[in-house]
């Protein structure tokens, strides 16, 4: 809709505007007859709305992802400390550079695995995300650090 008024662009419009969205109308908020709240209520007389359960589930998934992120961060620290304990010495400059590169890769591998899993399982099932994160925790264990500490 095009208006001739010069100050049209400076106003938010009103309810007659086709693009008007009522920001005050929350999805959780029941309609006047309470129908929306009634449909969101669980079947067996459980007063907890389904959207609240969904929100709690999302919070749990976020918390679990954060917890695993902490483990991956510890892995990165483990690798930073672990590469110093490795008996690596390249006989040539090229091999020495490649060993340094391998150490760099090992240090960033945890962060890379975590970020890639999050990026590729976005919108997917949580079990898929946690499955890949669990696999990464098995593959990326900083054995040089653990063996150095245990030894």
């Amino acid at each position: 809709m095009i208006s001739d008024r010069p100050d049209e662009a400076l106003s938010w419009g009103d309810e007659s505007d086709a693009s008007y969205v009522d920001a005050g109308q929350d999805a959780l908020e029941p309609d006047d007859d309470g129908s929306r709240g009634a449909t969101a209520t669980a079947i067996d007389g459980d007063p907890t709305p389904a959207s609240a359960l969904d929100s709690r589930r999302r919070t749990a998934i976020t918390a679990a992802t954060g917890l695993l992120g902490g483990v991956y961060l510890m892995y990165s620290v483990g690798w930073i400390l672990g590469v110093g304990l490795l008996p690596l010495a390249g006989p040539t400059l090229l091999i020495e550079i490649m060993y340094q590169f391998a150490e760099f890769l090992a240090i960033i591998a945890g962060a890379l695995w975590f970020a890639t899993t999050l990026a590729l399982t976005r919108g997917g099932r949580p079990v898929q995300r946690f499955g890949w994160l669990a696999l990464g925790m098995l593959v990326l264990v900083p054995w040089p650090f653990l063996l150095g500490v245990l030894g």
Binding site: G82, L105, L120, L140, P142, W143
Partner: peptide, 27 residues
Amino acid sequence: AQFTLVLIVALGAVATTRLSLIATAAS
């Protein structure tokens, strides 16, 4: 882009495995 990202992660996993095996062999 995702294909490249996965392969880079795999390269990182290869590096960690190699260094872990070196540490295990030394141990």
